[in-house]
Design a protein around this nucleic acid. Structure first.
Lengths: 233, 233
DNA sequence: CAGTGGTCTAGACCACGCC
DNA sequence: GCGTGGTCTAGACCACTGC
């Protein structure tokens, strides 16, 4: 039997994965170059390139010009998290989404916030606190600062029925963002809002969104105990 | 002035990003098809395709055959987390990595573990507990169950100096994995191991690794308060 | 220097899915 | 049906980098 022609990049990728998995190409090994594989698989080099590039993107291969392509010795797993609008996250679970604004004020933020956002320490920002609900139960508390210098339109919005989460996506373009996940102990106020005992462990997502050099908004989302952020490898 | 020729896919991507950001192509808008853009940009359709496909992968565009390409109304941010070997994570911070095995035993796991791994409820698995250190201080506690039915070689390994984390990458192939992130309150034992007060909030990473249908290993990593998992958008 | 991956081109065929 | 994106091909040039 001769090898079947692999004439699409997914078939090539599958075959490469099979060889890695079967240890025909063990971790750290140098694999044939694109041109040779193209001949072996009976396809064009571009097709091989597409397949290998996808595997390199996912961390399974290390590719370097001249040095060639190696099976990653210790693959860095790339877990992709889909950070969706909270309403979609809740509705995606088949639950009814609810939203409740807790407070809205223009105020000078704590130094930690103005520092992270790069705004003057005495500059007032728009401060929104809100509760997201799933099937009527608290799902997450949102504590957000909005840079009104970058998004002046926000001063005219009450955020009583539209969450800042969604409003900003529609009205404020951004170019970059930082996200950090951590575990924190709930303070009395947040615990009360989430309707759980104080000093419980909460899952926190901190996001800072930028438009070029300027910070657009900084938000902390706190999820009650039991919340899990899931993904696959 | 006429538009400069965009003869590489990154330049095309940048121009498309610029138009989205400048609201020339607002959220939800249908953008020209690949062939038209190729003419406008003075490059081949394949180059346009590469640029648009990359943007679609990152969630900024929605592409459907016949329906065309639209700017995503509410971009689902794809945050990519690099889940590296813990030693690399520590060394990447410029700290000295240390490893300490706490215990090793073959034992019948709790029902929750055998259930998640799909092993018989009375089947003994290899149970490893270990501590990862950064600059001599506790960095994370690892609590792992290994399916010796799938990785029999593990029974011959003491894991006294090599962490299961790294040993398994070298010796046990896998095809899929699930990861969950959550916040938990530390029990007395784990708190003691991490040298923090009990009932503190810890960041937990639970990972289940499979090779086809069979579970290879299930691990929980607990990080002391202050730990943050970071990424960018 | 020379081998490798990175990319572009021009053209082609195809699969999907609105209409 | 037919317009759209998805993909393949054969060939080419180039950038990087190990030797």
């Amino acid at each position: 039997m001769s090898a079947p022609r692999l004439n699409n990049w997914q078939a090539v990728q599958d075959e490469v994965l099979r060889r890695i998995h079967a240890r025909e190409w063990p971790p750290g090994a140098l694999i044939p170059n694109e041109a040779d594989l193209a001949v072996e698989f009976g396809c064009s080099r571009a097709t091989v390139n597409r397949a290998l590039r996808a595997l390199a993107d996912s961390g399974l291969l290390d590719r370097r010009r001249k040095a060639g392509t190696r099976v990653a010795a210790q693959p860095v797993a790339k877990a992709t998290l889909d950070i969706a609008v909270i309403r979609h996250e809740v509705e995606g679970r088949g639950q009814a989404y609810g939203y409740q604004r807790l407070s809205r004020a223009e105020a000078v933020p704590p130094a930690a916030v103005s520092g992270a956002m790069g705004t003057a320490s005495d500059r007032p920002l728009l401060h929104i606190r809100a509760l997201h609900l799933a099937d009527g139960r608290p799902y997450a508390v949102e504590d957000r600062w909005i840079n009104t210098g970058v998004v002046p339109l926000a001063r005219a919005e009450g955020f009583e029925t539209v969450s800042a989460n969604e409003w900003l996506l529609e009205h404020a373009p951004y170019t970059h963002g930082d996200i950090a996940f951590s575990a924190v102990m709930l303070g009395a106020e947040d615990a009360g809002t989430l309707d759980v005992a104080p000093a419980e462990a909460a899952f926190a997502i901190d996001r800072l969104t930028r438009d070029g050099p300027a910070a657009v908004t900084k938000v902390r989302l706190l999820f009650p105990p039991g919340y899990q952020l899931r993904t696959t490898l």
